[in-house]
Design a protein around this nucleic acid. Structure first.
Lengths: 219, 219
DNA sequence: AGACAATGCGAGTGATAGCTCGCAAATTCT
DNA sequence: AGAATTTGCGAGCTATCACTCGCATTGTCT
């Protein structure tokens, strides 16, 4: 019997050892991206680094973009695990403590593989298949909103969606800057940084409370 | 007499009409970047779009990266003009009003050429010559800090540099998101957005003040 | 053991990229 | 006007890239 679909969408097909080949290819992609950059990361080079032939590479990934997209997806899956866990742990805590822990989780997430994260942020063009991979942002948004919803009586904002988006965007940008670019202004003190960002969030979500008051559980 | 430096750094040299050629090339670069994306923006295509030969292009720009770097620099110069002007106008105003106007300026800056800005953010790899072009961020930081320094008695932060960095990073990320990605959560209402970001800043810089108090001039 | 599919291989292909070089046209200088 | 210089040209070179195809090896099923 002829191949089912011998044509264009020559995509997934793995059982047994071929799974390992795919993983090896993703690992190699990460290494080449970090060491050579996106432009120099040719499919040939990636295959060579993986110790796999180009032909095999093209059996699982129709093009370079699909390869990178798969790597991004794998990386994001790891980060999401981390963030989901943090949100779960924090669900019943008061706002100030919860926010602090979530910021800490954001920092931890950025510390998983900073070099790779930097490449994704600075060199990988977001287009085509890559455009859809931003589900991490979306999921983080939903998790954060569900927390804020549950704790609606502790906060005072007009529009929950807007407030959530602002918190998530700000935390991600600040954490990224802190971990990836380590600016002088934010020095290297991690707990100090987490403190500041927590203050930023609390001042926004609980305007009118002085910091000390924010640390007390609402009665 | 032989050319002064016929070798590698075949860089600037313009008087009269050659200036126009350079500008035309930068305009063409912008158009090709926006319409075709970074990868498809080859030097040949850019030269063709500009109605200039490749040879001429290489007389002024040693490579594609230099071309894009020059375009980024030109774009940033325009934005900086805008931001500098806003900071000057705001120097003597109270914190709440000043912050609101600065956020507004940030939005305006992002609205200068959103399509191009998006390309810079999403597709142009930051490396080599491009890495140095981040002076916009640095200048914004300095401007903001000088304002906060002058108004030190209105705010309560421990570390001015850290607070400045946090404000600038947050505002830039939020504004970018608002203008470039227009997320549902932030809707399309510009003044509403500016309000929210201003509240974020004020809650951070003046913790313990209720919003209404923040809007009154300090006595 | 034998047959058939799944997986792996890598030299080779066509396309396109960045970039050069010898020459022509325009501009400036004297 | 004539010489010198700056500016502009574009066919063409080399390198590299993404991707294919016919064949070899490995694994599975009976």
């Amino acid at each position: 019997m002829a191949r089912a679909i011998p044509t264009i969408p020559r995509k997934s097909a793995s059982q047994k050892r071929s799974k390992a080949t795919v993983e090896t290819l993703l690992d190699a992609t990460a290494r080449v991206l970090v060491r050579q950059g996106y432009d120099r990361a040719s499919t040939n080079r990636i295959a060579e680094t993986a110790g796999v032939s180009v032909g095999s590479l093209y059996q699982y990934f129709p093009n370079k973009e699909a390869l990178v997209a798969a790597l991004v997806a794998r990386h994001n899956r790891e980060l999401l695990e981390l963030v989901r866990h943090a949100v779960k742990k924090v669900a019943s805590l008061d706002l100030a403590t919860a926010m602090r822990e979530l910021v800490r989780a954001a920092v931890d997430a950025h510390l998983v593989d900073p070099a790779l994260h930097r490449i994704f942020a600075e060199q990988v063009p977001r287009m085509g298949q890559l455009a859809k991979i931003e589900s991490l942002q979306q999921e983080a948004f939903l998790l954060m909103r569900s927390y804020l919803e549950e704790h609606g009586d502790e906060i005072s904002v007009r529009d929950l969606d807007a407030a959530t988006k602002i918190c998530v965007t700000a935390v991600e940008a600040l954490t990224h800057e802190f971990v990836i670019n380590k600016p002088d202004a934010l020095a290297g003190d991690r707990d100090r940084f987490i403190d500041e960002v927590t203050r930023l969030l609390m001042g926004y979500l609980m305007p009118g409370r002085v910091p000390d008051e924010q640390n007390r559980r609402r009665t």
